[in-house]
Design a protein around this nucleic acid. Structure first.
Length: 468
RNA sequence: CGGGACGUGGCGCAGCUUGGUAGCGCACCCGCUUUGGGAGCGGGGGGUCGCAGGUUCAAAUCCUGUCGUCCCGACCA
């Protein structure tokens, strides 16, 4: 693991790929841009799914499943949408050995096919809101791919809802942004996120407004961690999602869509990783405490098993590694690479004193703890590490954020992090100019940091950065 | 599509300039010794050098063609 995490982006991807490979998280699939997620990587995703799914259901949204293949004609119904996604589509042309009359697109996102069914299911205002989500894989042809951050095939969650009014839809879009996405990312992933609205150039194809949460990586580049779109009545018109209101009149519904993907695993690696590998925040960690033996003996193995049982029954996610045929250093380094928050080493020397060695991945310190107090000590270490990771990331973001007065200043400042620039001093022309220099407007916020209702509000602040 | 590299055991590479029977590290297998921070020693298996043609007594190496991959840019959760 050669490179240090300097704010010079060129070295970083190499370091990133080292972690992905050495921690056995994922590797490339046979087709361009596909990713094979290995069990250690998938465990991270599974934990994200658990935490996210609980939050999604809190909003009243239900899970469902829609087809992988979508007739091409569905895409053509919404003009902006087809234009936006046409270059990214993978298309199925044959089935059963024969050429299909109508080609089928492998879903890049499911607004169109879900819209088709929503139209059938929505008849009355009593059917609203209709709140659906699906966990699935999607495919988008990408010119440049990178494991977890941008792959042709990725796993995600996509929510799709229909509401009675603009206000209801707007409110729900922001509820997802705050209560589901930002809450999960800050409290579980320990990654502070900027919440805001996207410019027209960065908006989802076919949407009225796109809201997003953005995290800053260790190298000062931004990563879009999730988006929530209010689609207005664009898709409702295209797919004829109509209902009869209280007043007896037919009206088009107001729809939203929102998604987060396995990219969050990439954000986790690049947001928290260090020269020794991944660091996983305790609340997310599939393995919170890793119990290992130092040397092989009946006493040591017995004590390790006992510690494992005790920690497990205290409600922690624990892994017991009883191997003694692999060198100690190898096992310790592997545990570090995979980012297990707490490692407990049990050897004859510890046992002689009735102790165990507790190693914190985040703080990197070792301490000896009496066996009887392990459960409390581990719980305390986990809590401290969760907070320490968040604080560290927040401090870094603040340190890497600079105010700018002009587009040129912003481009300069964005070489190392976020540049804050009044949107009035930037505008669409400034945005294009910055983009030519590899810097994009990530989100717009109000002066007080809150999320604007639309791009029309005066006095907005733009956050510019380089991004993945 | 524009610019630049590279194809040699599973992975990462050297060898090519100056042709002479294919080598290193990691990984893997066996044995012994090890195990408190990526073990040591000994032994072993695995490659028609991307593909096709040409030059030559002889081609990984030189020539021609071809296929493919990666990087930078444009596009993007």
């Amino acid at each position: 693991m050669a490179n240090v995490l300097t704010p010079q982006g060129e070295d970083f991807p190499r370091w990133y790929q080292d972690v992905v490979a050495k921690a056995q998280l994922a590797e490339n699939g046979p087709a361009k841009g596909q990713q094979v997620i290995r069990p250690t990587g998938f465990a991270l995703w599974e934990r994200m799914v658990d935490e996210m799914d609980a939050r999604i259901k809190e909003t009243g949204t239900e899970n469902a499943s829609f087809p992988l293949l979508i007739p091409e004609s569905y895409f053509r119904r919404e003009a902006d949408h087809v234009e936006g996604f046409a270059p990214e589509l993978w298309t199925v042309t044959h089935a059963g050995g024969k050429e299909l009359e109508e080609k089928l697109a492998v879903r890049p996102t499911s607004e169109t096919i879900i819209g088709e069914y929503m139209a059938k299911w929505v008849k009355s205002y009593r059917d609203l809101p209709l709140l659906l989500n699906q966990w699935c894989n999607v495919m988008r042809y990408e010119l440049r791919t990178r494991l977890f951050l941008r792959s042709s095939e990725f796993l995600w969650q996509e929510g799709h809802t229909v509401h009675e009014s603009y206000e209801d839809a707007h409110e729900f879009t922001l509820r997802i942004l705050h209560d589901v996405y930002a809450d999960f990312m800050e409290n579980v992933l320990a990654l502070p996120v900027l919440r805001g609205i996207k410019t027209e150039a960065e908006r989802f194809a076919g949407a009225l407004n796109t809201f997003a949460v953005e995290a800053l990586m260790r190298d000062g580049k931004a990563l879009q961690m999730g988006t929530s779109h209010e689609l207005g009545q664009n898709f409702a018109r295209a797919f004829d999602i109509q209902f009869q209101g209280k007043d007896g009149q037919q009206a088009h519904g107001w729809t939203t869509s929102w998604g987060t993907s396995t990219r969050m695993v990439g954000g986790l690696i690049m947001g928290h990783g260090d020269d020794s590998g991944l660091r996983v925040p305790p609340r997310l960690a599939p393995v919170q405490a890793y119990v290992m033996v130092v040397k092989d003996s009946d006493e040591v193995q017995g004590a390790a098993k006992q510690v494992f049982d005790e920690l497990k029954s205290s409600g922690l996610r624990v892994k017991l590694d009883h191997r003694a045929d692999v060198a100690f250093g190898r096992r310790a380094v592997d545990a570090e690479l995979k980012g297990y928050p707490v490692r407990i080493e049990i050897g004859p020397r510890d046992l002689k004193n009735g102790e165990a060695t507790l190693v914190s991945r985040v703080k990197g310190v070792k301490e000896t703890v009496p066996l009887g107090m392990l459960a409390e000590a581990v719980a305390a270490a986990l809590e401290g590490d969760q907070q320490a990771l968040f604080d560290e990331a927040l401090e870094r973001r603040e340190r890497l954020t600079a105010d700018a007065a002009t587009v040129d200043e912003a481009v300069e400042a964005a070489q190392t992090g976020y540049a804050r620039l009044p949107w009035d001093a930037c505008g669409v022309e400034g945005e294009q100019k910055a983009a030519a220099a590899g810097v994009t407007v990530r989100v717009l916020q109000r002066e007080d940091g809150s999320v604007p209702d639309s791009l029309d509000e005066p006095g907005l602040i733009a956050y510019l950065a380089r991004s993945y």
